[in-house]
Design a protein around this nucleic acid. Structure first.
Lengths: 110, 110
DNA sequence: TCATTATATAACACATATACTATATATGGG
DNA sequence: CCCATATATAGTATATGTGTTATATAATGA
């Protein structure tokens, strides 16, 4: 599925930046406005706005409008696709190692 | 920890590309040479070699030397840091929602 | 209404990523 | 020793990402 792939691209891409991961970590503590989020960073407000746009584009956060503020919060379940992908990979890996173990444990037939 | 951050950068960055995820998925089935890996892709061999280099740099795969071939395989546990990070984020998110639930469930004191 | 605050967008600079082709290197086999 | 095979590297073109400053928009409040 290409659309699925593109979604993982944007999700993993969003997570590949330390600023964005820090933003997510802060939002895990609760809703925050753009300025709240920008404050701790040595970075301009527009730069933070763009990171938020990337996170929103990846479906990791949503924003509501509250007067002139735009509080952001995490989207629960946004990482499910990532989890699924990682779980599948791990399953394959483990199956592979189980086979190897079995091979090594078996009395050699040759 | 900056080094920790950089590691997550490179890991998530490596996972952000669909070709690289497909390579990992194939390697989950077992060891494969560069040519084995390159075959299914509509992409030149050098391009695949570079993807492998990225995956190796992220610690997701290792290669051994076997004659003129360089079989690659997954590194078990390479995704542990990613899992930890995701788990922590989810924990924060859930704690946040638990607090919200408690708030909504509590008889309003005002 | 006007200034202030909160946020977004535009325009730009610079670095990095990703693909290609051509070529180098290194191993194995005749 | 020479050729074929497997892989890596160099050089190049192009796209994308990330930051900056300057400016636009939109809501608040005096």
């Amino acid at each position: 599925m290409r659309s699925f792939d593109i979604r993982l691209d944007t999700t993993f891409g969003a997570l590949a930046d330390p600023t964005r991961r820090a933003i997510l970590a802060q939002l895990a503590l609760g809703e925050a406005t753009v300025m709240d989020i920008a404050r701790p960073f040595a970075m301009s407000q527009p730069a933070v706005s763009r990171h938020l746009k990337v996170l929103e584009g990846a479906g990791l956060i949503v924003r509501r409008i509250e007067g002139t503020k735009r509080p952001c919060r995490l989207v629960p379940g946004a990482l499910d696709a990532v989890d699924d992908w990682l779980r599948q990979l791990r399953a394959g890996l483990e199956a592979n190692y189980d086979r190897l173990d079995a091979l090594l444990a078996a009395p050699r037939p040759n």
